[in-house]
Amino acid sequence: MDAMETKSLTLAYGESIIIEELDLQIPKGEITVFIGGNGCGKSTLLRSLARLLKPKDGSVLLEGEAISKQSTKEIARQLAILPQGPVAPEGLSVLQLVKQGRYPYQTWLKQWSEQDEQIVWDALRATGMEQFAERPVDSLSGGQRQRAWIAMTLAQETDIILLDEPTTYLDLTHQIEILDLLFELNEKEQRTIVMVLHDLNLACRYAHHIVAIRDKKIYAQGKPEDVISCDLVRNVFDMNCQVTTDPLFGTPLCIPHGRGRCIVPQVST
């Protein structure tokens, strides 16, 4: 069974259709990355998967059941979302932030427990944020802050994690650190991870499954090596490029070259 899927999903802001009659499957236990040009609907689609945006038509299924029929806490125990550029209240410590991830498990009968405490500290250790537990979130660097928010999503203990551009505003070193961390979570714990990424080469390097969006629909989807091509980059991003192979990871590597024709690499004999 897929972790999530959509059926004839149509999303809109007012009368403006953003996504139209989309049928999408999110493979369970894999990393799926949404790619596409600015304004194509990637983030809108991600928000809909998290039930933050009500569909104009169609449905989103979580483990085979429509999310519209599930309670907010039921959904929060199954999936976590990290929006783009989240902001913590001024003075909130990293520890206090990460503890928010346990909210879906708190009830009048079940208050904070030793198990909750252990899960929070496990999340801090997993993200390398244990030493910053008492630091205010707003005093951290961009990479540290992003790790703190990811720690909060880990404390939520969901099988599915949705992230909207988790590397935005980070330098290359911190981008790789964050993506390596998410890759390890997937490898070690089989978490299903769904991300929106702008960097096509990083998307190819880390994704098991890529979904390219264009003109309100899925243009192509599948393994990076099966779908990434000069034609896809030209049609989805309106950019010509050369597609070769990443020498370190064997994944597609896109080299943009402006307005010229799409160059096919020559193979020496």
Rank of each mutant, 00 (worst) to 15 (best):
T269M: 04
T6S: 14
L95I: 08
G142E: 02
G14L: 10
Q144I: 04
I210W: 04
P252G: 04
P136Q: 05
E20F: 11
P89G: 07
L163G: 03
E5D: 13
Q96G: 14
D138T: 11
G222R: 12
I255N: 03
L61M: 14
P166M: 00
I178F: 00
A88N: 13
D138N: 09
L179N: 07
C40M: 10
E30A: 15
S113C: 07
M4L: 15
D138W: 08
A123R: 00
T127V: 10
L162W: 02
R261M: 06
H208G: 05
V267T: 14
S139F: 12
E184D: 12
A126R: 04
S113K: 05
L232A: 01
M152T: 05
L248D: 08
A80H: 02
G14V: 04
E117R: 06
V137H: 06
V264E: 07
G37E: 12
G250F: 05
Q190N: 14
P104M: 01
S268G: 10
L182G: 02
A66E: 14
K28L: 09
T244H: 12
D57K: 15
A3E: 05
S68R: 11
V233R: 00
K56L: 13
L24D: 02
D180Y: 14
Y219P: 15
V211D: 07
R125N: 10
E15Q: 11
V33E: 05
M1P: 15
Q78P: 00
P224W: 00
V120S: 03
T44A: 04
E225G: 14
Q70I: 02
Q242Y: 01
V33L: 07
L9H: 07
A151W: 03
P256M: 07
A12C: 11
L97Y: 11
R191I: 15
D171F: 04
A220Y: 01
S113R: 09
V211G: 09
R77F: 07
R191V: 15
E187R: 15
G41T: 08
A207C: 12
G142F: 01
I67M: 04
G128T: 02
I17F: 11
H208F: 08
E65N: 11
